[in-house]
Amino acid sequence: MSTSGVSIDLTGKVVLITGGTRGIGKAIANRFIEAGATLILTGTKAAEVDKLNQENKMEEVSYLQVDFSDPESSAVFLDKVASVGKIDVLVNNAGVNRVAYNTETTLDDFNFLNDINVKGPYLLCREISKLMKHNGYGRIVNVTSIWSAITRPGRSLYTTTKYAIAGLTKTLAVELAEHNILVNSVGPGFTETELTLATNTTEEIERLSNMVPIKRFAQPVEIANLILFLCSDLNSYMTGQNLIIDGGYTNV
């Protein structure tokens, strides 16, 4: 991928992207493929991951199953990741949400969101940073949300998890900087994914779009472009930041 003589070449880099089979994660994966990276992508459902591996025709891409709400699945996955030996880039993109007023939430809701949105990234950052420290190089991007900077009714659990990841990002950036490992987080605003289109009416999307200064949702590739930059050697100094990419929505 090149523009006006500036290029991003990730040939030889091994990249792990969680939740890389759909939506923003798929767009991130496509950008990294274009940049020449070798990718490990995760999915939650074993049958879906098996099918993806069977249908996959790209040698530089492989799929692994992991469900961070299942301790056994997490342990098996972390063992597989450790055996790779070299992971240059980690993108913690997988996440879940349940919308409800705090008084209507349950402990199961709390545990489910925290297992996937917080424990999963925590475990991966902990284990993969060991590999990165050994190799003297790394880039980590944790995907947060605009709800790591602002909130709205019904988002108490989701906002809690995203603020936690922004905090984890800042601390890891300080701890890992001396090892040539840069750690940032990216908070997407309203983004036009398959899930967004399936769960919102045309009228709802138009109403939300009008609340964004740019007057439209983000395309997944626009989120992916920012993450690609942060994980490339074009970024050699930015670390510990939670970058909100929302078309100006959080400034209104």
Rank of each mutant, 00 (worst) to 15 (best):
V61R: 08
T11A: 06
G85P: 08
L234H: 09
F112G: 01
D79C: 05
T160Y: 03
N135F: 05
F32K: 00
A224H: 00
D50Q: 13
E204L: 13
D67W: 08
T3D: 09
T171E: 12
L41P: 00
T3Y: 15
L234P: 04
I245D: 06
V221I: 10
E178Q: 14
L172Y: 15
N251L: 15
V49I: 13
V15R: 00
I245N: 06
P213C: 09
V143K: 02
V118R: 01
R31Y: 04
L168D: 02
N135L: 08
L123E: 13
A218L: 13
L90I: 05
Y101H: 14
Q65T: 15
G189M: 10
L131A: 04
S232P: 00
T151D: 08
A27L: 07
I24K: 05
D79K: 15
L195T: 05
L230C: 09
L131S: 04
L124T: 04
V76F: 11
P153I: 06
L176T: 02
S7C: 11
S209C: 03
T171N: 10
K119T: 13
N200A: 05
A100D: 07
L124A: 08
C125W: 01
Q65R: 14
L131N: 02
V6F: 11
E194L: 11
K215V: 06
N53F: 05
S7R: 13
E175Q: 11
V91M: 02
P220V: 04
V14D: 09
T201Q: 10
A166S: 14
I205H: 06
K162T: 11
I146E: 06
I245H: 04
T199Y: 03
E127P: 08
F217G: 00
R152V: 12
P153S: 09
R22S: 14
D108K: 12
K86G: 08
I33F: 05
I24Q: 06
K26T: 03
K119D: 04
V221G: 01
Y101T: 12
L182A: 04
E194I: 10
G43E: 00
I223W: 03
Y63S: 03
N93H: 02
V89H: 00
S73H: 05
T42F: 06
G167R: 06
T3K: 11
K86H: 12
G5Y: 11
I146G: 04
A173F: 08
S74A: 15
T18E: 02
W147G: 01
D115C: 15
G247T: 05
E204F: 12
S185I: 01
T239Y: 01
E203N: 05
V212D: 01
A173S: 14
K57I: 10
S148D: 10
I146Y: 06
G247N: 04
G167W: 06
V141S: 02
V49R: 03
S69T: 15
A173D: 07
N135G: 07
